[in-house]
Amino acid sequence: MVPVEYYLVLSAAVFSIGLYGLLTRENALFFLMSVELMLNAANINFIAFSAQWGNLTGQTFSLFVMALAAAEVAVGIGIILVLYRNFKDVDVTVPQEMRW
């Protein structure tokens, strides 16, 4: 069995890449995909430690993370479509003022 440290390093790499995308990009679609990468890094940790301790709690909780990621993407898609409808663009630096 592969040591758990390897999976932790993989998860740290995926999380850092997602963080880089979140910091660098200005397109809302890339924001969404970077957040997906970071949530998946958390999932790797859950499942790696589930196998490490022989306990199913991590696997069960990773399912909740997946459900929340799906919900987050559904709302994110709605927000991106509204952004595109009003600004003809998905650049997150364009909308700077609230309505009131």
Partner: peptide, 22 residues
């Protein structure tokens, strides 16, 4: 910034010592 975060995380993970996998 992302690389520094990665290095810190890896340093912590590799020095923690989790023992044998159950």
């Amino acid at each position: 910034a992302a690389s520094v975060l990665f290095v810190v995380l890896v340093a912590v993970f590799l020095t923690a010592g989790f023992g044998e996998a159950a």
